[in-house]
Design a protein around this nucleic acid. Structure first.
Lengths: 200, 200
DNA sequence: GAGATAAGCTACGTCACCGTATCCAATTGA
DNA sequence: TCAATTGGATACGGTGACGTAGCTTATCTC
């Protein structure tokens, strides 16, 4: 034992261990995809034994939902200034920041394959979405509609989704996340016109 | 042999066989997902032997790209009447019709997992997208811009993608394809305002 | 018809993951 | 300090996909 001092045992327990496993699960998902997620893979990545995983979760999917639910919640965009345009850009920036996180990757993967794993999507709604409120641009829009800066009739299931929809679409098409300029263009050319502010 | 007359041998060859395999590949993908696509699975579904597949394709991915490329091309929306709104709705209808096809399912899966299988996405661009032109709403918008029904400056990388982006987003959120009413709402509340026609 | 071509079938050893069992060792807390 | 807890390591038989080989047999072509 006194020989290999480099290898500190430092055995993890309880919450610290669970957190490490959650991280490993999200990282594993990002790398191999939802269809290839396996207990073996997660255990390997977390440097622990399968046994430890099976003592807490019955399936990789169960583990995954747990990991997403425990992940840090999304930063809520707080409409500060009396500047709808700036607040919308800020909200989309929060969105792209979130999309870079492992948890977001998992959420999107689950939503995309929801017809293949309906239980997973259902658990996601139950354990993650429902406990939290709306997100991103919707928060901003509701604020301005309530404070008179915006015609409330312009808030529809369509208009409130334009920002998110465009960010997702651009990300897919370009294979990268939108830049600040592109986010501004989304606000100027798509969202604001739909809210009743015609393009320049 | 004369006993089991029910089992017609009817051995498939050449193109007919290849077409059946292509269909099986797309069906298999739809059911198990890109990460689980396997030669065994495709062969099983096509009721043929693995050997037959390996004689033509080295990997399931190669087979898949071939299948997508050979699939019936997308119907091109032809702007007919002098009615931008109707033509846009028609274009989105073509889009949702396409999204119900197995080939579309494959294209979306490949695009979604492009960072995981970059070669696949690249092959898709090379063998499928590039040979064909733009699609869906872009076709319509270019037509009207060229014929004076629309300010060409309104055609940007953002505005031309709103329709497709919203259809994808709605499909993900709802877990189903948008209805005709929802397509009309996308046109009225998102696309037309962005083109310079303010909402009612 | 007869030979060439290609589809279909079976089998093989290899490998990865499955879910479980067993045992050892580190940490904790009474 | 000692006992309970729990993480960690290893091994197991089972399954399913891998890629290849060999053979039989249906179909096409001359």
């Amino acid at each position: 034992m006194e020989k290999a001092a480099a290898k500190a045992p430092e055995r993890r327990r309880g919450e610290a261990l669970v957190r490490a496993i959650h991280e490993a699960a999200l990282a594993e998902l990002a790398e191999v995809g939802l269809g290839q997620l396996s207990m073996e893979g997660i255990a390997r990545r977390a440097s622990t034994a399968k046994t430890v995983l099976y003592r807490r979760w019955a399936t990789p999917h169960e583990l995954l939902v747990d990991a997403v639910a425990q992940a840090h919640p999304v930063e809520v965009p707080t409409p500060a200034a009396d500047d709808l345009r700036a607040d919308l850009i800020a909200a989309l920036t929060v969105l792209t920041d979130w999309m870079r996180t492992p948890a977001a990757n998992a959420v999107l993967a689950i939503m995309f394959e929801r017809h293949r794993y309906p239980d997973l999507a259902e658990a996601l709604y139950r354990d993650v979405f429902d406990p939290r409120g709306g997100t991103f641009t919707t928060t901003v829009l509701r604020h301005y509609a309530a404070n008179g800066g915006l015609d409330p009739r312009r808030l529809t299931p369509i208009t409130t989704q334009i920002g998110e929809a465009m960010v997702f679409k651009l990300s897919m098409d370009l294979g990268r996340f939108p830049t600040a300029d592109e986010l501004a263009a989304i606000v100027d050319e798509a969202i604001l016109p739909a809210l009743g502010f015609p393009p320049a």
